[in-house]
Nucleic acid binder design. Structure first.
Lengths: 155, 155
DNA sequence: CGAAGATTGTATCCCAGTAAACAAGATGCC
DNA sequence: GGCATCTTGTTTACTGGGATACAATCTTCG
């Protein structure tokens, strides 16, 4: 990814959260493809695998909403992953419209294979910030999107 | 935009900056289309207009790099805006490959017409955060993408 | 100078992701 | 029960944006 030119006046854009988020996300994408190169995995596929690993039997529509992926697109992704033997799909008897998703053994193996690279990826993504700044940034983003804090035992 | 389901375990994704950025950006997009509804403007077009307004005569390639838009795509956008009478393109004599971009009178009028809605949009985007949190978030994002702080006189 | 290489914008092809319409099933309401 | 309405997943058609290759121009260096 090429750097931003520093001779440009961004005007009101440098105060626009939306614009800053767009640039940040593209930067994160570039980092992802840098760090995960050779593993032939896309961000969307990885996110599906990780959430499926933590939520066996999750319904396809709930997964789509959780990842902010449109249902139509989720269908394509999940079908492809089923074709590749990573995911199995079952129809629950209490609602025969729905589809429940499960990782196959191959799927679990894929997660196990990707997990180290993913974990290594995290520090790389935040290399430009101090640890404190990283923590703060993540907390604010979670608050902004209304995502509950993880692993926070509330006594 | 529909809310995230709160019964889903995001696993390691809730610690992934890239994932948080993706969700945040989609949220920002939804906010944008909410607030700018009826003005028939897309985020990309607006960003071009604003940067052009602050940098008259900027070269097409520099603009593309500044906004992280691919040159091929910038060509399409700018051509369309030229067709709509918003932008004029001139070839500088010192480099006849390049193209300099200028807002037309219509273009300036368009910026003036969009600016109030854009300014109103900013608070809306950050409604879930306190003012302090908003300032911090923007500062950290700017640092993360290597964008210089605006309006900071360095004595 | 002049040939090799880099930069700038463009045309072409391609694909991830969206929107809209649909089918099948569930739910509410009388 | 039975009709209207909502959900859930899927199909189809389309679009924004990227990858690639290219032409024209500029630069470098022999």
């Amino acid at each position: 990814m090429t750097d931003l030119p520093d001779s440009v006046d961004y005007g009101p854009l440098s105060e626009s959260l939306g614009f800053l988020l767009r640039l940040s996300q593209l930067r994160a994408f570039a980092d992802f493809f840098d760090g995960m190169a050779g593993l032939d995995v896309h961000p969307g596929e990885l996110s599906v695998l990780l959430v499926l690993s933590a939520n066996p039997g999750i319904r396809q529509g709930v997964l789509a909403r959780a990842l902010t992926i449109k249902r139509a697109h989720m269908t394509k992704m999940v079908r492809a992953m089923e074709r590749d033997g990573l995911v199995s799909r079952t129809v629950p008897q209490d609602d025969r419209r729905a589809v429940e998703l499960w990782l196959t053994d191959t799927g679990h193996a894929r997660v196990a294979a990707l997990r180290p690279a993913f974990d290594t990826q995290q520090p790389r993504e935040t290399a430009r910030l101090t640890p404190d700044e990283t923590t703060t940034l993540k907390r604010l983003l979670r608050k902004h999107i209304g995502l509950k804090e993880p692993d926070t035992p509330c006594p």
